[in-house]
Design a protein around this nucleic acid. Structure first.
Lengths: 217, 217
DNA sequence: CGCCAACTTGATGGCTGTCAAGTCAGGTGG
DNA sequence: CCACCTGACTTGACAGCCATCAAGTTGGCG
């Protein structure tokens, strides 16, 4: 990011607190007061919001390098739950300290703006997925997205473990778990992926990609 | 926001450029390079994104006091189209200048973080709407939201003009325009609203509200 | 080894999309 | 001023996708 050594030291000081979480642990819960952002160092997380009547909606899955907790800045209270889907490690970023520091380091402020902006754009992508795609297309887009993100982190793009349940995938994609399960089976029958419980391999990336935008007109 | 007079003067300087737009005008288009944020002074706007295959998804409706363009910060290019739905007026906020200024004025930086955070939370609300509500519930939630926002701006909470078409509402809610039209008719038959083209009155707020979370279990 | 959560698969139904045929309102030009 | 035209909207008939309900099956963990 083009920081001076002094600035780097300051940022280092900011993120000194680490936190380990086990699978199933909550990082924070909806309604808790907001104090810090959390950078995922390693592992896999999921965020979800609850409606008043008890239904919940998975709003995202976070991997190494991604940020948790930005929902809490606006109101001072977290607006969703964040749960670890495997044993994971976080950097705790106390937010008041962070804000002070980013007054001194322009690049840090800019970085924060970009990260939040990208989160907004990502959310718009999900809205598009939920609003205008059919079930198979949604699942294909989801798998392509996971593949791309694993790949960017040095893992295999074509073979990975789904850390979340079918129900969580369904919630994220606006589908029921049975539908997700059926679609996995269908994609397997079609020779596009092989699925064995949580283990997925993409055997035909081109066809999977072609499912994502199926109606060129 | 608790700013000193000097700070207020600086912020005043920042937002000096105004821009009038007529109904149908674009504020910016997807792909254009990002230079400024736009604060809605008066009027009504809509943002939408296009998939590669031509379908588009309305991602939001913006009223006075709300901000357009935050999607562009992350990549330096706008990620959606912003269109005026009536003759409107904007403040242009050149973003580089804004970032410099918010290094000097802590309250300004904090404000920006809060605004972006709230946008993220709002988007999560839409994801919840799209992912877990049925059609009638979505429309009810949409009307309640509009009502609340009009009310907050000093307009009637129970009677307003829909600035957008049925198609735009449908796109936003993940429904087809025919479905939206049918639902308006149904809500009218049920005595909850009266609709006449773009004019809507809410005649039974309690019942409308009760449609939003219909399954207490 | 047994239990339980997660998952798969089948049968059925209903919500919402699709296609089609109008109706209405507002704007334009004669 | 009126006829016309066009985009927006409404309504009906029908179909299909996905939810729902139900009954297993599998795998992980104590």
């Amino acid at each position: 990011m083009g920081l001076s050594q002094t600035d780097l030291d300051k940022v280092d000081g900011l993120v000194q607190v680490r936190r380990s979480v086990k699978r199933g642990d909550h990082v924070f819960r909806s309604g808790e007061s907001f104090h810090a952002l959390y950078a995922v160092r390693a592992g896999f997380f999921m965020t979800s919001s609850l409606t008043e009547d008890g239904r919940d909606q998975v709003t995202g899955f976070q991997m190494a390098g991604e940020l948790l907790g930005m929902d809490g800045i606006g109101s001072g209270k977290h607006a969703c739950d964040a749960v670890a889907l495997e044993d994971s490690e976080l950097c705790v970023i106390p937010f008041p300290t962070f804000e002070e520091l980013s007054l001194q380091i322009p690049a840090l402020q800019q970085h924060m703006h970009r990260v939040m902006s990208r989160e907004i754009v990502r959310d718009h992508g999900v809205m598009m997925l939920l609003g205008s795609m059919r079930a198979e297309e949604r699942l294909a887009a989801f798998l392509m997205n996971l593949s791309q993100r694993y790949s960017a982190r040095g893992f295999s793009a074509n073979e990975f473990i789904l850390r979340m349940t079918r129900e969580a995938i369904g919630s994220y994609l606006g589908l029921k778990l049975e539908t997700v399960s059926r679609l996995f089976s269908k994609l397997q029958e079609d020779g596009i992926i092989t699925v064995n419980q949580k283990r997925v391999s993409i055997t035909n990336v081109a066809r999977l990609r072609s499912l994502v935008n199926p109606r060129p007109y």
